[in-house]
Design a protein around this nucleic acid. Structure first.
Lengths: 115, 115
DNA sequence: ATGATACTTAAGCAATCACTTAACTGATGG
DNA sequence: CCATCAGTTAAGTGATTGCTTAAGTATCAT
């Protein structure tokens, strides 16, 4: 019933506001209002986005006093990257093998044609 | 108002059925029904998933006779991977710099403490 | 031609999404 | 103390998602 982590990571990454927040967070931790500042939406909307990011494991937060500080969690970013990388590599290997096969076919054809 | 390509790529990747289809497609092109076969859902549902994959640029399809053949488009996969990679690298560089800074601070402290 | 195959289109439905406004809690600074 | 600041909670809304079933439309084999 609980969705796979990858589902939630990619879902989190699919929103431009959330990607903007992540981009900001690569330059260091930030408070909720710092994350909200460049975005054209209400604070509660931002808080909801942060909840999605946190739920996906992309971001870790900690509240000290009245300010909640957010940080990137590189691990889940890396797992998502790895999933994509594996598929892409496999597909490219397949294309390479296909290329080799076609080259071989062409050579055989030439051979057959010149006796 | 049309969503950024990255939005749609990550959105497409966020569904397990669509990831399963992509995974199948890394082993070579497949028809709609071949993609549908391992999935516990109706054909129209599968067709809709394929439309999402195609709309995101992750998959290219071509209909010959009555069978539509689907193929991975590695390019958009790579662009998504690159976005993640850039953020992750930047965050990790930041952590490294922070580590260096803290190490330096500790050294200075020790220096200051032993006159 | 006929019937099976391989999708396609259309309509509908419940759940989730990305917001909003309004009201609230709980630090902090003067 | 009390006002401000930082964030939270709750409730509502319109749009989008991920399915479904039912009824098509081409193609292909016989």
């Amino acid at each position: 019933m609980s969705p796979e982590p990858l589902d939630r990571v990619f879902q989190a990454l699919s929103d431009p506001a959330r990607r903007a927040m992540l981009e900001r967070l690569t330059r260091g931790p930030a408070s909720v209002s710092e994350l909200a500042q460049p975005l054209a939406m209400s604070l509660p909307a931002v808080v909801q986005h942060i909840a999605v990011l946190e739920g996906s494991g992309l971001v870790r937060t900690e509240k000290i006093g009245r300010v909640r500080t957010c940080q990137i969690e590189a691990g889940s970013l890396q797992r998502a990257e790895q999933w994509i990388n594996e598929r892409r590599i496999q597909w490219e290997r397949r294309l390479d093998r296909l290329g080799d096969y076609l080259a071989l076919q062409t050579k055989d054809e030439t051979k057959g044609k010149t006796p």
